[in-house]
Amino acid sequence: MTRMLDGRVVLVTGAAAGVGRGVAVAMGRAGAVVGIGVRRPEAATEVADEVREAGGVPVVLRCDVTDGAQSAAAIDQLVAQHGRLDALVHNAVSNRSSEPTDLETAELDLWEEHASVTVRATWRLAVQAHAHLRAAQGAYLLMTSPAGIEGSAPLPFYSAVKAAQRGFVRALAREWGPDHIRVNSIAPLAISPALENLRSTDPERVARIEGLVPLGRLGDPTEDIGPPSVFLCSPEARYVTGQTLVVSGGRFTSL
Protein backbone atom coordinates (compact mmCIF):
# COMPACT_ATOMS: atom_id res chain seq x y z
CA MET A 1 0.00 0.00 0.00
CA THR A 2 2.93 2.38 0.51
CA ARG A 3 3.91 4.84 -2.24
CA MET A 4 0.93 3.77 -4.31
CA LEU A 5 0.38 7.40 -5.27
CA ASP A 6 3.95 8.44 -6.06
CA GLY A 7 3.90 11.31 -8.53
CA ARG A 8 0.15 11.77 -8.22
CA VAL A 9 -1.85 14.76 -7.08
CA VAL A 10 -4.91 14.43 -4.87
CA LEU A 11 -7.30 17.00 -3.39
CA VAL A 12 -9.16 16.16 -0.17
CA THR A 13 -11.99 18.46 0.97
CA GLY A 14 -12.81 18.83 4.64
CA ALA A 15 -9.27 17.76 5.44
CA ALA A 16 -8.75 19.73 8.65
CA ALA A 17 -10.06 17.05 11.00
CA GLY A 18 -11.58 13.62 11.37
CA VAL A 19 -11.83 11.30 8.39
CA GLY A 20 -10.65 13.98 5.96
CA ARG A 21 -7.50 14.55 7.94
CA GLY A 22 -6.83 10.83 8.18
CA VAL A 23 -7.37 10.34 4.47
CA ALA A 24 -5.06 13.27 3.66
CA VAL A 25 -2.28 11.79 5.81
CA ALA A 26 -2.75 8.35 4.24
CA MET A 27 -2.53 9.91 0.78
CA GLY A 28 0.72 11.57 1.86
CA ARG A 29 2.05 8.28 3.15
CA ALA A 30 1.28 6.83 -0.28
CA GLY A 31 3.52 9.46 -1.85
CA ALA A 32 0.97 11.93 -3.18
CA VAL A 33 0.97 15.67 -3.44
CA VAL A 34 -2.00 16.32 -1.18
CA GLY A 35 -4.24 19.34 -1.62
CA ILE A 36 -5.60 19.95 1.87
CA GLY A 37 -8.94 21.63 1.24
CA VAL A 38 -10.11 23.57 4.29
CA ARG A 39 -12.31 26.56 5.03
CA ARG A 40 -9.66 28.17 7.26
CA PRO A 41 -6.08 27.55 6.11
CA GLU A 42 -4.74 28.56 9.52
CA ALA A 43 -6.45 25.46 10.92
CA ALA A 44 -4.54 23.17 8.59
CA THR A 45 -1.00 23.63 9.91
CA GLU A 46 -0.96 20.40 11.87
CA VAL A 47 -2.41 18.23 9.16
CA ALA A 48 0.04 19.73 6.65
CA ASP A 49 2.89 18.78 8.98
CA GLU A 50 1.47 15.26 9.32
CA VAL A 51 1.22 14.86 5.55
CA ARG A 52 4.82 16.03 5.17
CA GLU A 53 6.08 13.73 7.93
CA ALA A 54 4.23 10.84 6.28
CA GLY A 55 6.16 11.44 3.08
CA GLY A 56 3.73 13.50 1.05
CA VAL A 57 3.78 17.04 -0.25
CA PRO A 58 1.07 19.16 1.41
CA VAL A 59 -0.60 22.08 -0.30
CA VAL A 60 -3.01 23.92 1.94
CA LEU A 61 -5.91 25.35 -0.04
CA ARG A 62 -8.76 27.58 1.03
CA CYS A 63 -11.74 25.55 -0.13
CA ASP A 64 -15.16 26.17 1.32
CA VAL A 65 -17.04 23.79 -0.95
CA THR A 66 -20.24 25.82 -0.71
CA ASP A 67 -18.41 28.64 -2.50
CA GLY A 68 -18.04 27.63 -6.13
CA ALA A 69 -15.47 30.28 -6.94
CA GLN A 70 -13.34 29.17 -4.01
CA SER A 71 -13.43 25.47 -4.89
CA ALA A 72 -12.62 26.26 -8.54
CA ALA A 73 -9.68 28.40 -7.43
CA ALA A 74 -8.43 25.62 -5.16
CA ILE A 75 -8.44 23.12 -8.00
CA ASP A 76 -6.81 25.61 -10.37
CA GLN A 77 -4.09 26.44 -7.86
CA LEU A 78 -3.25 22.79 -7.23
CA VAL A 79 -3.07 22.03 -10.94
CA ALA A 80 -1.06 25.19 -11.64
CA GLN A 81 1.50 24.22 -9.01
CA HIS A 82 1.73 20.50 -9.71
CA GLY A 83 0.52 20.10 -13.26
CA ARG A 84 -2.27 17.60 -12.78
CA LEU A 85 -5.11 16.30 -10.65
CA ASP A 86 -5.35 12.54 -10.32
CA ALA A 87 -8.00 12.22 -7.65
CA LEU A 88 -10.55 14.32 -5.83
CA VAL A 89 -11.88 13.15 -2.48
CA HIS A 90 -15.00 15.03 -1.39
CA ASN A 91 -15.20 14.48 2.34
CA ALA A 92 -16.50 17.82 3.66
CA VAL A 93 -19.85 17.81 5.43
CA SER A 94 -21.94 20.45 7.11
CA ASN A 95 -20.77 21.45 10.58
CA ARG A 96 -24.21 20.41 11.71
CA SER A 97 -24.04 16.95 10.14
CA SER A 98 -23.86 15.08 13.44
CA GLU A 99 -26.49 17.23 15.13
CA PRO A 100 -29.70 15.26 15.80
CA THR A 101 -32.49 16.68 13.65
CA ASP A 102 -36.12 16.91 14.67
CA LEU A 103 -37.48 16.10 11.23
CA GLU A 104 -41.05 16.95 12.17
CA THR A 105 -40.22 20.58 12.90
CA ALA A 106 -37.00 21.11 10.95
CA GLU A 107 -36.75 24.20 8.77
CA LEU A 108 -35.61 24.35 5.15
CA ASP A 109 -32.58 26.39 6.23
CA LEU A 110 -31.13 23.31 7.91
CA TRP A 111 -31.86 21.18 4.86
CA GLU A 112 -30.03 23.78 2.77
CA GLU A 113 -26.95 23.51 5.01
CA HIS A 114 -26.76 19.78 4.42
CA ALA A 115 -27.61 19.93 0.72
CA SER A 116 -25.21 22.73 -0.13
CA VAL A 117 -22.18 20.82 1.18
CA THR A 118 -23.08 17.26 0.36
CA VAL A 119 -25.30 17.36 -2.73
CA ARG A 120 -24.59 20.61 -4.59
CA ALA A 121 -20.86 20.61 -3.91
CA THR A 122 -20.65 16.96 -4.97
CA TRP A 123 -21.98 18.00 -8.38
CA ARG A 124 -20.05 21.28 -8.61
CA LEU A 125 -16.69 19.77 -7.67
CA ALA A 126 -17.23 17.06 -10.27
CA VAL A 127 -17.84 19.65 -12.96
CA GLN A 128 -14.84 21.72 -11.90
CA ALA A 129 -12.48 18.72 -11.75
CA HIS A 130 -13.76 16.89 -14.81
CA ALA A 131 -11.23 18.04 -17.41
CA HIS A 132 -8.29 17.42 -15.07
CA LEU A 133 -9.51 13.99 -13.99
CA ARG A 134 -10.12 13.04 -17.62
CA ALA A 135 -6.60 14.09 -18.56
CA ALA A 136 -5.17 11.99 -15.72
CA GLN A 137 -7.65 9.11 -16.15
CA GLY A 138 -8.21 9.66 -12.48
CA ALA A 139 -10.76 9.06 -9.76
CA TYR A 140 -13.53 10.89 -7.93
CA LEU A 141 -14.12 9.49 -4.44
CA LEU A 142 -17.02 10.54 -2.21
CA MET A 143 -17.16 9.97 1.52
CA THR A 144 -20.72 8.86 2.08
CA SER A 145 -22.01 7.16 5.22
CA PRO A 146 -23.73 4.00 6.43
CA ALA A 147 -26.56 6.39 7.38
CA GLY A 148 -26.99 7.00 3.67
CA ILE A 149 -27.72 3.33 3.21
CA GLU A 150 -29.62 2.35 6.34
CA GLY A 151 -31.36 5.65 7.09
CA SER A 152 -30.80 7.13 10.52
CA ALA A 153 -33.68 8.23 12.76
CA PRO A 154 -31.77 11.03 14.49
CA LEU A 155 -30.01 12.14 11.30
CA PRO A 156 -32.67 12.13 8.58
CA PHE A 157 -31.20 14.99 6.52
CA TYR A 158 -27.70 13.57 6.75
CA SER A 159 -29.10 10.19 5.67
CA ALA A 160 -30.84 11.68 2.65
CA VAL A 161 -27.91 13.72 1.36
CA LYS A 162 -25.47 10.86 1.87
CA ALA A 163 -27.85 8.53 -0.01
CA ALA A 164 -28.06 11.07 -2.81
CA GLN A 165 -24.29 10.76 -3.12
CA ARG A 166 -24.64 7.02 -3.69
CA GLY A 167 -27.10 7.57 -6.52
CA PHE A 168 -24.69 10.17 -7.89
CA VAL A 169 -21.77 7.72 -7.76
CA ARG A 170 -23.61 4.99 -9.63
CA ALA A 171 -24.88 7.28 -12.36
CA LEU A 172 -21.69 9.30 -12.79
CA ALA A 173 -19.58 6.14 -12.92
CA ARG A 174 -21.56 5.20 -16.02
CA GLU A 175 -21.42 8.71 -17.45
CA TRP A 176 -17.68 9.11 -16.96
CA GLY A 177 -16.67 5.55 -17.77
CA PRO A 178 -15.91 6.49 -21.41
CA ASP A 179 -13.58 9.20 -20.06
CA HIS A 180 -11.78 6.56 -17.96
CA ILE A 181 -12.62 8.42 -14.77
CA ARG A 182 -13.63 6.15 -11.94
CA VAL A 183 -16.28 7.24 -9.44
CA ASN A 184 -16.67 5.47 -6.11
CA SER A 185 -17.63 6.10 -2.51
CA ILE A 186 -16.64 4.89 0.93
CA ALA A 187 -19.10 4.56 3.80
CA PRO A 188 -16.83 4.73 6.84
CA LEU A 189 -17.43 4.13 10.51
CA ALA A 190 -14.65 6.03 12.21
CA ILE A 191 -13.72 8.07 15.20
CA SER A 192 -14.66 11.69 14.67
CA PRO A 193 -13.94 14.76 16.79
CA ALA A 194 -17.55 14.55 18.03
CA LEU A 195 -17.06 10.95 19.12
CA GLU A 196 -13.75 11.79 20.78
CA ASN A 197 -15.58 14.39 22.84
CA LEU A 198 -18.28 11.88 23.64
CA ARG A 199 -15.67 9.41 24.84
CA SER A 200 -14.64 11.83 27.58
CA THR A 201 -18.18 12.89 28.54
CA ASP A 202 -20.07 9.61 28.07
CA PRO A 203 -17.61 6.72 27.78
CA GLU A 204 -20.34 4.13 28.35
CA ARG A 205 -22.19 5.30 25.27
CA VAL A 206 -19.06 5.04 23.15
CA ALA A 207 -18.47 1.57 24.60
CA ARG A 208 -22.00 0.58 23.56
CA ILE A 209 -21.33 1.80 20.03
CA GLU A 210 -18.05 -0.08 19.90
CA GLY A 211 -19.79 -3.18 21.22
CA LEU A 212 -21.84 -3.31 18.02
CA VAL A 213 -18.71 -3.50 15.88
CA PRO A 214 -17.51 -7.07 15.35
CA LEU A 215 -13.91 -5.88 15.33
CA GLY A 216 -14.60 -4.19 18.67
CA ARG A 217 -13.58 -0.63 17.93
CA LEU A 218 -14.35 2.41 15.83
CA GLY A 219 -12.14 2.92 12.81
CA ASP A 220 -9.06 5.09 12.86
CA PRO A 221 -9.27 7.73 10.11
CA THR A 222 -5.66 7.30 9.01
CA GLU A 223 -5.02 3.61 9.61
CA ASP A 224 -8.45 2.16 8.77
CA ILE A 225 -10.18 4.58 6.39
CA GLY A 226 -7.02 5.87 4.74
CA PRO A 227 -5.79 2.68 3.02
CA PRO A 228 -9.04 1.84 1.19
CA SER A 229 -9.26 5.50 0.15
CA VAL A 230 -5.73 5.36 -1.23
CA PHE A 231 -6.56 2.14 -3.06
CA LEU A 232 -9.68 3.58 -4.71
CA CYS A 233 -7.73 6.66 -5.84
CA SER A 234 -4.84 4.61 -7.18
CA PRO A 235 -4.30 2.82 -10.50
CA GLU A 236 -4.58 -0.46 -8.57
CA ALA A 237 -8.34 0.12 -8.56
CA ARG A 238 -8.51 0.78 -12.28
CA TYR A 239 -11.40 -1.67 -12.82
CA VAL A 240 -13.47 -0.54 -9.82
CA THR A 241 -16.13 2.09 -10.43
CA GLY A 242 -19.68 2.85 -9.35
CA GLN A 243 -19.15 1.15 -5.99
CA THR A 244 -19.64 1.98 -2.32
CA LEU A 245 -17.13 0.31 -0.03
CA VAL A 246 -18.46 0.00 3.52
CA VAL A 247 -15.50 0.30 5.91
CA SER A 248 -17.09 -0.28 9.27
CA GLY A 249 -15.29 -3.08 11.09
CA GLY A 250 -18.20 -5.32 10.16
CA ARG A 251 -20.78 -3.09 11.87
CA PHE A 252 -22.84 -2.95 8.70
CA THR A 253 -22.98 -6.30 6.94
CA SER A 254 -26.27 -6.12 5.04
CA LEU A 255 -25.60 -3.11 2.85
Partner: peptide
Protein backbone atom coordinates in the same frame (compact mmCIF):
# COMPACT_ATOMS: atom_id res chain seq x y z
CA UNK B 1 -27.20 11.83 -12.60
CA UNK B 2 -29.44 14.45 -10.92
CA UNK B 3 -32.46 12.17 -11.11
CA UNK B 4 -30.58 9.14 -9.75
CA UNK B 5 -29.22 11.27 -6.90
CA UNK B 6 -32.67 12.56 -6.01
CA UNK B 7 -34.28 9.13 -6.11
CA UNK B 8 -31.69 7.57 -3.82
CA UNK B 9 -31.86 10.51 -1.44
CA UNK B 10 -35.64 10.32 -1.19
CA UNK B 11 -35.59 6.54 -0.83
CA UNK B 12 -33.30 6.69 2.20
CA UNK B 13 -35.09 9.76 3.59
CA UNK B 14 -38.15 7.49 3.63
CA UNK B 15 -36.22 4.90 5.64
CA UNK B 16 -35.26 7.52 8.20
Amino acid sequence: VPLCSAVEGIRVMAKA
